[in-house]
Amino acid sequence: MHATLADVIADTAQNSIEAGARHVTLSLVEDGTTIAVRITDDGKGMDEATQARAFNPFYTEPGKHDRRKVGLGLPILKQLCEATDGTVSLKSRKGVGTELSYSFSATHIDLPPMGDIAEAILMLFNYPGDFDLAFTHRKGTEEYSISRLELADAVGGLESAEGITLAKEFLEAQEEELQGAR
């Protein structure tokens, strides 16, 4: 179980990167009553049989982790969604890509705290590989969007201490501005 929603979001979006996606979109929408997350990718996708087993904790993609027999990411996500009056839906086509959408009731007593979204996005952006990830965070009527390649270009790469520090400042400033919004 993740301690914060930021960790849940980072974990589920990381699946897209690990599925070899070139383009990932991640949106986080807070409207006061619901927190909704949608992740789309053009990774390798799953056939119907695999999708049917994706929420089974005793199934994991063969070869993903040597000798590991469990795959807990999606099952724990489902458990959290169900526990917080939310929903979860997985749509995928093998060779085309995957869309994962989930939501929580924003006021549910069992909902974990949001956590540090700026840090979670920075971690996703810093993940190695040749992919773009477009992130949008919407809260009420305000929103901001930033893509990995755009930010990497602006700060001169996300693998140096300077680049990472600047990117973090930027993401924190966007989040701070959004948190002030109603």
Partner: peptide
């Protein structure tokens, strides 16, 4: 991760790549 980035910045090291990996 944050401590590494900060320490590398503090030392002014520009020849270090900071990466991450999964489990």
């Amino acid at each position: 991760f944050t401590a590494l980035v900060n320490a590398i910045s503090d030392k002014g090291l520009t020849n270090v790549l900071i990466r991450q990996t999964g489990c």
